[in-house]
Write a protein that binds this DNA or RNA. Structure first.
Lengths: 278, 278
DNA sequence: TGCAACGATACCCACGAGGTATCGGCGCTG
DNA sequence: CAGCGCCGATACCTCGTGGGTATCGTTGCA
């Protein structure tokens, strides 16, 4: 019916399709189907243009009222639901382009829902999920997944971060073994072992302790240490990141507590999967 | 929303599913999805039973009103459309079980639509479609399809109709060649050549002229002629039908005039395809 | 008479709504 | 208090359809 109202108002299939953010053929089909169900021609397609038939005029009025009614229902129910809120944890500084798209999409499809964001440092890959500080975390695997549900959103190749003037920075790809003698920045003791081990390339390392992304970069810049990072992020010109060919890619994931009853999680995850799929 | 109203009224997923003619799991999922979109729990599932939450109560009222509104819109539009009608032609005496299911299904999904039926004899496989006597024909292929659109609904094996005491009737299958010396009942001159040729098994035959199903049966009973018929129909006990192994199966088809603008045709064909798919 | 516009058609792919089988949790019962 | 049964949730599969791209046919216009 939204489709029909759009076409009836534009009196032009192409423009209506644009307004509905879709292409023209499926719109034509949808209108045809509506006509088949009502049993009457709603739009007179003459080569000079599209006109409303008598029945079409009736339906236009009725459809407008009905759609308005539906919108009112939505509003009333979400009012009755109170300020529904979801807290999402984001690892690091959350400048991931996917996050921006996701936030925009979710605000659009669920207006009135209160989205709270909690930016966390790199020491807890679950962003405080277990502690109940967030409902869902946008983070990176791997980590201890007991009592959590994990959904992969994307995979990024991983590289090593070096000073731009580091001799190794001239390579266009490296192996972990070529970095064995370097100092690596380290997460503090007590962080998730799987997480810690992954970012150390699988073997224990020595180096300065970091907690946030900025600290990692500083550690590389000032201390000449190295460390791993997913590719595809903007870095200051003084730093270089060289792809590692023997490192499993880093998975961007959405995580939530198994058995969490907050109904918003379900819709949030769904929006997330499509937003990350471009 | 219909689903939600059903569950809210029954306060029992299983019973609601039965009422909606569906199974319980997809209903559970649908409600969950509604809850995800609303952002609030609508139903409190306790092991003792299902209860409406506060938000659920609000939605129940609103949903009832909205669904009622939608029904009113349907009624108003179909009233404005006037007595929309579709005339369907049926070949032979139209006792095909599929036809009954189709009629029932279409009346249910399109109440208020005037279905007129035109039973025709076997001399015109298009049931007067080209002459404009019907909008859509439920008939059997093959025939001249120029300017027609054909949609196959089902395929029936074909057999030869014989008197029960005919020596050939004792076989459980036959070949066309074994019937070469018999007289076959014939359609009148001027009927569609493809149609005529098909029911003659591909070669010209001699025999009494028939127009209706009854006449065919009488021709076999009283004149000792033979003829072809699709299997799977009830016949009087004095007649037998023996499957032919070298005869292409007979396709039950829906046909309409190419470019016909009656919008009901589309929905009728759709209902037909699902009705014939059991 | 060629061209541009526009709705219709053909074809393809991915998502989701529906199904069946099974699980898990709680209450009831012997 | 252990076992059973009820009932909603979960897992997994399949098919229909809603959306896409590419192309056609018609018609008005230059």
């Amino acid at each position: 019916m939204r489709y029909f109202v759009a076409v009836a108002e534009e009196l032009h299939f192409g423009r209506a399709a644009a307004r509905l953010h879709m292409s023209q053929p499926p719109l034509s089909r949808a209108i045809k189907q509506l006509e088949a169900d009502t049993g009457a021609l709603l739009l007179a397609r003459s080569p000079t243009g599209v006109t409303l038939t008598a029945v079409g005029t009736v339906l236009l009025d009725e459809a407008r009222a009905l759609l308005e009614h539906a919108d009112r229902v939505r509003a009333r129910v979400s009012e009755a639901a109170g300020a529904a809120a979801i807290t999402v944890g984001i690892l690091g500084d959350g400048t991931d382009p996917g996050v921006a798209r996701l936030a925009a999409a979710y605000r659009r499809t669920h207006p009135g829902i209160d989205i709270r964001v909690r930016d966390t440092d790199l020491t807890d890959p679950t962003c405080g999920l277990r502690a109940g500080l967030v409902d869902v975390a946008l983070t990176r695997a791997p980590f201890d997944e007991t009592a959590l549900t994990v959904r992969t959103l994307r995979s990024d190749p991983v590289g090593v971060v070096l000073r731009a003037d580091d001799p190794l920075a001239r390579h266009d790809r490296l192996r972990l073994a070529e970095l064995g003698h370097r100092r690596w920045f380290q997460f503090p003791q007590g962080t998730d072992p799987l997480w810690q081990s992954y970012w150390n390339g699988g073997t224990p390392r020595e180096g300065p302790v970091v907690r946030a992304v900025q600290e990692c970069l500083h550690a590389v810049l000032w201390n000449g240490t190295v460390g791993l990072a997913p590719l595809g992020h903007d870095l200051p010109a003084e730093l270089a990141v060289v792809p590692l060919i023997d490192m499993a890619p880093s998975r961007v994931v959405a995580v939530w507590n198994k058995g969490d009853t907050n109904p918003l999680i379900r819709s949030f995850i769904k929006t997330a999967t499509v937003a990350y799929r471009h």
